[in-house]
Every structure is written in structure tokens, then in C-alpha cells.
Design a protein around this nucleic acid. Structure first.
Lengths: 334, 334
DNA sequence: CTGAAAGCGCTAACAG
DNA sequence: CTGTTAGCGCTTTCAG
């Protein structure tokens, strides 16, 4: 492998001059600069990033930790982060945490080994203690989780506001018995996506003057299409009556619609369904799915802004930004 | 940051002994070993990987280059690669190539900077020349592309066999006018996914004793759900008659089903639809989608096996493995 | 079985 | 504007 000193020799200059030309750090005489660039091209030199990293302590790599890449929401998020980070000169390494708190901490433990300049953590089960711990190790931005923790940067989703709007929308379409489709709220967790979105559902029911019926919880263990489909089939077979379903995510909503089809119930005529996330599939499902659409590009852009600023200044106070959202109405509720 | 020499001092040994304990390279006295491990724990030491990389020339990172992470197929692939690579002690950096040949070459150019120990390239438009070039730079495994190029490892998909089986299946269900839904085969490319799958469709028609009708090509520019939906709507509005659609991917098939719903056509009563890939959504769409299901876990496992062997021996001849597949019949063709 | 010295390729800091 | 020196933290090599 040709190295910087080889290029320097070829161009008849010192290694530092090559470094300066390649990094644009100091101004270099135009003629020398030209000679250096020619030598680089001629020799096929590529920089050894490990050497630079060892010296500077920065890697140019951002870590993105998500529960599971194969979930459409996180895949779409990943695509956006990779693309936007590239614009900023960063590369992205994707970690899968498996939706466990331990996995999330592990992702950061990895990050501590100087692999990442910063980490975007799309957390599911993380609490304030963990967040504080993580934040000390590495520049960190939490994505999608609402924490009442002043020291950690995070981009919060409009969780309760979103499901509240979704629930009110169903009521405005005439639904009277609106079910909630989600895995159970984890015990003891107070500021979790599932908890917050459930809260919004309740507020929405209250806004619409509807009372909450515990029988209208779709039984499911995990936030998967499979569990959602099975859960709603179970409810249907048990003779529970409902005319609307608010789902905690679009994936769950798609599973619900699948299960309703199995029950012979029509969407939206018999049951209206609304999700949350606006994944790509929602626009093309049959029927197409109404949903709460947080502004994804904005979220990723904001997360990267917070992260790059945090990388520059580790001591600045933590900031919270809440993503804007829109209610998108499609066939499933019309 | 605490470093290896700090641990050594704390344990009262030399740096080399710490290195040996941590890497299990040489056998170390049990008592000393214990002291070292304790010192590691006490000091909170984590290794600086850049330093190791600089010294050893290996990174422990595998690159995965895919056209776009937000496509369900590549997202699922990415999840599997990340998970399986982790089992082997590798981490994965995801690159998005944007489905352009240049992007694919760029991904490898990056890899040359010693960032990756190897690269898995899920290629779309890559040809033999590019592949040969790439292969010289870095251990490389092509995924999903069939190349008649002896020197490059690749995991081929059963492209033409798959769509052939899909087409024959539609015919066996009584379809007489079977359309082909795909972006156009790129001019001049001979061994491209789209080309191979189209070939299989033709073979399938021949097997079934059906003649090919050029009017039964769904007009679409890109392999997106949107283009598929619009394309089939266009065909319908133009009065083209058809009773089956073979789609080049599941995403395209889902778009087709969306478009058929807009046309008021029922699946499978009026039109039967089959896809290729077996993405998760296909099981839960309404109607659920019949598809050609290559063995994904097998493919990833095989790709990683080839890659790790290639990393060990750069001079071994290239190997080609073809993934097994199954025809999965669901509601869309029954 | 353990240690000392050298050096991987780059850049910060200082010198000219 | 350009060059020299030193050293980032680890592992390879050689010596004990």
C-alpha cells in the first residue's frame, strides 16, 4: 500500500505538505499543490484512516442503533440517516439493539471504543439513568423517545399528540367503539413510546366524549404484524364489538387490517383503522392506511444537527426538539 | 482515556502481557491473568481499535453495499447480515449505492481505504469488468447477481428459475394472459436481475404453451410500488386484458395489487399476482401475496462464509453458489 | 512464560 | 509557506 510519504517523495515535498494539500488545512503554493495531487493520482494513494484516527481521535463515523433494521420504520430511518450523514461527510455504521435495554447500552459500549464520533440511538426501552450514563461516554442523540432528562439531546416524536389526533379523527368519522392495538405498556416505564401513545389514545377518547373500555385492547405481545393480526382475530372470535382501531405503529395497523380481512370485516365500512409512522407501505396497502406522519426528513436532519453540535461542544446543555406531524387520511378511515 | 499501558502498570506487568491476556494469543500464568483482568475491570479499559487496526491492518468491519436501505428486501437483508456478522465477530457498515454502477464502485473505493476487511455488494448494475476491478481491491462477495466471471465470489439468486416457476404456477391456476411487471431490461446488460427474471417469465410462458404478448408488459420506469401501481392502472385504462401478473419483486407486486384495486379488479378472482423475494409484508398484505422465496438466511450465511474464506485466502479461485428457493402460494393466486 | 524495543501511517506543534 | 520532530496505542519481533 502506497502511503503519504511515498507521495511526498514522488512530488519532491515533505509528508506534511501532502497532508496539508489533501486536507486543505493550510494554504499551499499552487504549483506544489498541483505536483502533490498529480503524485497522488499517479501512485493511486488512498489514505489510511486508522492512522489518522489514531492521531486525531476522530473517525468520521456515526453509529446508528436501532432495534431491528428489518422493521420498515427503522429501515426507512436508516436510509435517511445514511444519506443525510453522507452529505455532512460522515459514514454510518448500523447496530441492531434487539429492542432490549442491554442491547442499547452495548451499542454505546461499542461506541466507547473510539469507533464512532457520535451515536444516534433510536431507543425503545431506555430510561433516564441509562441515558445519563450513555451520554457521558459519547456524543449522543436519542431519537423518538421522550425523556425528562435535561442533559441528553433528543428528538422527540409527538407521541401522545399524534395518537390523540388519530383517535379524535376516528371519532369524527363516526366510530364509537375504538380499540387500541399495541403491545402492553411495560411496567414501571413512564416515558416509553408505547406508554405515550396509549396516553394519547385515552386523551383522544376523552376529547370525543367516549369512555375507555378495557375490553377494547387488542391482545398482543410484540409490535409485529403477526401479533397484530392474531390479536384482532382473537378479539373478533371472542365476539368483542368495535368499529375503529388506533394502532401504535403502521406495521401493527397493517397486521390489524390483515386480521380484519380474515374475520370478513371490511375496512373502512365495518371498521376504520389508523396507524402511526407513515411508512412507505401504508400508501400502497389495500386499503391504503390513514396514519400519523411525523416529518421524517426533519427528524433526521435535526438529529444530525444536534449530534454535530454536540460533537463540537460536549458541555452544552441537552436540547429537546419535538417533530412536527400531519394526520394523513387515506382509504382506511374514509 | 485509559490505555493498555495503564492497565499494565496497575497489574504490575508489561503491556505485552495485557495484550496477550486480552487477545488470548499466548498462554499466560493464571494468577497474572487474573490480575490483568481485574485491572481491566477496575480501570474501565476499552481497547482503541484504531491503534490495533493501524498495527494489524484488519478492522473487524465488513461493508455491506445495497442500492437503498429503505427497500424492504435490502432492509431485511441488512438486518440478517448485521446479525450473522455479529456472530462471527464482525461489525457491519452499510453503504447505499443508489443503484448506480458508479455508486457501487464508490463503495469499494471507500473500502480500499482499509476501512473494511471485506465487502458484500448487493449489486444491481454491475458488470464483469467492474467486478474484476473491485475484486482486486478488497475481498468481495457479490450477492444476488449472476455473473459469468470466474474470479469473483458470488451468491447467485435463482432468478430465471424463480420467475419461470412463478409463471408456470399462474398458468396452472388457469391464467392465459399473463403480464410481466418490471422496469425495462437495461440495454446492453446481459446478466442483470431484471434481464434474468424476464427470461424466466418467457421460459415459463413457453413451458405453459402460452405465447408472449408484448402488450402485456406493465409500463414502469423504476422498481417502486408507485410506478407499479401507476403502470398497471395505465394498462387497465388502455383496455389491455390480462388475468395474471408476474412481478419482478414483491414490492412491485404489492404496487400492482394496489393499482388493481384502483381499477376495481379483484385479486385473485379477476387477476392473479405473484412476486419474488418473500419480504415480510407479503405474508400480511390483503390479499396475501404468493411469491418466490429464496432462502435468505442461507444466502447471508453463504455470503459470509465465502467472504471470511476469501479474507483468509485472497488467491483462491472464485466460487458461485446458487440459493435454493421455494414457491410460496398465498391468497393472491389461489 | 514474560519483557523491551521498534514501528504501523498519520498529524499537532513547533521551527524556520 | 514548508519542514522536522515526536508520538497517538497497539502488536510484532526478538531477547531473556
Amino acid at each position: 500500500m502506497v502511503k503519504m510519504s511515498d507521495v511526498a517523495r514522488l512530488a519532491g515535498v515533505s509528508t506534511m505538505t501532502v497532508s496539508n494539500v489533501l486536507n486543505g488545512r493550510r494554504s499551499v503554493n499552487t504549483e506544489i499543490r498541483r505536483r502533490v495531487l498529480e503524485a497522488v493520482k499517479e501512485s493511486g494513494y488512498v489514505m489510511n484512516r486508522s492512522a489518522r484516527t489514531l492521531r486525531t481521535g476522530t473517525t468520521g463515523v456515526i453509529g446508528l442503533a436501532v432495534p431491528a433494521l428489518h422493521h420498515a420504520y427503522f429501515a426507512e430511518l436508516g436510509g435517511r440517516v445514511v444519506a443525510q450523514a453522507a452529505q455532512l461527510g460522515y459514514r454510518v455504521t448500523v447496530e441492531q439493539t434487539g429492542a432490549h435495554v442491554q442491547g442499547e447500552i452495548d451499542a454505546v459500549a461499542l461506541a466507547r471504543t473510539l469507533e464512532y464520533d457520535g451515536l444516534i440511538l433510536s431507543a425503545i426501552g431506555i430510561g433516564p439513568e441509562e441515558a445519563r450514563f450513555l451520554n457521558q461516554s459519547i456524543p449522543l442523540v436519542l431519537l423518538g423517545e421522550k425523556l425528562f432528562e435535561e442533559t441528553v439531546d433528543h428528538i422527540a416524536m409527538p407521541n401522545s399528540k399524534g395518537t390523540r389526533a388519530a383517535t379524535v379523527h376516528l371519532a369524527s368519522q363516526g366510530c364509537k367503539r375504538i380499540a387500541w392495538a399495541s403491545s402492553p405498556a411495560p411496567v414501571g416505564e413512564t416515558h416509553n413510546v408505547v406508554v405515550d401513545r396509549l396516553l394519547g389514545y385515552r386523551q383522544g377518547l376523552a376529547d370525543a366524549g367516549l369512555s375507555e373500555d378495557p375490553g377494547l385492547r387488542v391482545p398482543m405481545d410484540h409490535l409485529t404484524m403477526r401479533d397484530a393480526a392474531e390479536g384482532i382475530r382473537q378479539m373478533g372470535k371472542n365476539g368483542v364489538e368495535f368499529d375503529g382501531v388506533v394502532a401504535v405503529t403502521d406495521a401493527v395497523a397493517l397486521g390489524i387490517m390483515r386480521g380484519l380481512a380474515d374475520l370478513g370485516l371490511r375496512v373502512p365500512q365495518d371498521v376504520r383503522v389508523i396507524g402511526y409512522d407513515d411508512i412507505e407501505q401504508s400508501e400502497f396497502s389495500t386499503p391504503s392506511l390513514s396514519t400519523i406522519a411525523p416529518d421524517h426528513e426533519w427528524m433526521v436532519s435535526a438529529a444530525l444537527t444536534l449530534l454535530t453540535e454536540r460533537i463540537k461542544d460536549r458541555s452544552a446543555p441537552g436540547r429537546e426538539l419535538v417533530a412536527p406531524f400531519r394526520l394523513i387520511t387515506r382509504e382506511s378511515t374514509s
